[in-house]
Nucleic acid binder design. Structure first.
Lengths: 209, 209
DNA sequence: TCTGCTCTTGACCATTTGATCAAGAATTAT
DNA sequence: ATAATTCTTGATCAAATGGTCAAGAGCAGA
């Protein structure tokens, strides 16, 4: 009994190139339409590839989606990971917030992809949320707590501070349509970053006496 | 030439009841799966109604969706509308933030419905965003600006302050899966509300000398 | 009661869509 | 060169899904 459809064992140049093309196209399509809304045909068309050919590289639609999520999950953690316990608290938080704002601006599609996934219950990345993410946030909350204990920033709940930073920074990517509509123009990312830093950090300064 | 399918002209009791049932079920389904992900069959099943019967009340899937959005759009504006120019700034903002937090807790499904719609480009509510919403935000930004000019709160960009409030408060509804995963438990809405008020308002207090 | 309208549904249809297959083209290794 | 493997695609399929239809059941007013 022979298998009828052998899958490649090694990763050839062509595979690397085409998988990359597919993921690039898929990010466009999935971020615009969500998992259910996206169609394999759309992704194939954007990849300039026939549908069967696309499905030669990723057997199922879901495989593309999962690969895409995994492809960017670790990038997402990086800025928070860099929060340095030994650094100046306000400088560190400012850097983190700025980094997140820049990620939102540079890659809004990835942000929307995640937002959509979480909005719909995060069926594919539950493990990521409850594992590495939770772990890292716990660790960094400790750092923030130690800053508070040392009297270097105002006492606020570290977890909710992190949630607030995520919420505000990602808002500019995920809800850009609303932001632009309300402002009546394309949002100015420089101005937004400055305003966000002020709003989130001003309250953390300890009053000098 | 006679029309083959007359639609009811008046609104009977049965219509009112069934439309309500359908919208209730549709909120569940649309908020969980998005417009494309939701199926008419699912909504019909949740309404305990046959599909053709459901489509007797709403001819197309899209009609249910639009009705649902319109049904809650005005509710969404209400808390901001109540921001009182004559009141104490911090009290007014605290009330607004609390109201938004309570809406997120009381009706997370409606919040997710909107979030999903905006995330996907807001095709159905573009007019709402560029019209009534923009108008109201412009008006209330003026109010905040006047508070700043009077030296009653710290100088921050009013638009971005409003965005920050929206972002943070809706985060608890839209991303509750992530919040719960990171906290390792069901989020405590009382604690969240307290933390959010501190984080957003502390920075607005003007330093007394 | 009878007439006309509203309400309900089983059966059905057309389209979309995720996925398969067989067969040929291109590439790589020997 | 040539054999083996990888890559590509037109044709096709089965399931899901939005929507229609005709016919009957229920209900309200005369």
């Amino acid at each position: 009994m022979s298998h009828t459809k052998a899958k490649p064992v090694v990763n050839t140049r062509i595979q690397a190139r085409n998988k990359e093309l597919i993921l690039e196209a898929a990010l466009d399509v999935f971020s615009a339409s969500g998992f259910r809304g996206a169609t394999v045909d759309q992704i194939a068309a954007k990849s300039e590839m026939s549908k069967p050919n696309l499905l030669y590289y990723f057997r199922r639609k879901e495989d593309i989606y999962v690969a895409l999520l995994e492809h960017t999950l670790s990038d997402w953690l990086e800025p928070l990971r860099e929060l340095n316990p030994a650094g100046d608290p306000l400088t560190e938080l400012a850097r983190y917030i700025s980094a997140k704002m820049q990620m939102s601006e540079a890659n809004p599609k990835a942000s929307r992809l995640f937002a959509n996934e979480i909005l719909h219950g995060a069926p594919m990345i539950e493990k990521f949320l409850k594992g590495p993410l939770r772990q890292l946030v716990a660790e960094k909350s400790q750092v923030i707590q130690s800053w508070i204990a040392a009297g270097n920033i105002a006492p606020v709940d570290p977890y909710h501070l992190i949630f607030a930073i995520w919420a505000v920074t990602q808002h500019y990517a995920d809800f850009s349509v609303q932001v632009d509509a309300v402002l009546g123009r394309r949002e100015d990312s420089k101005a937004a970053q400055k305003a966000v830093l002020e709003i989130l950090l001003r309250g953390l300064q300890v009053k000098q006496s």
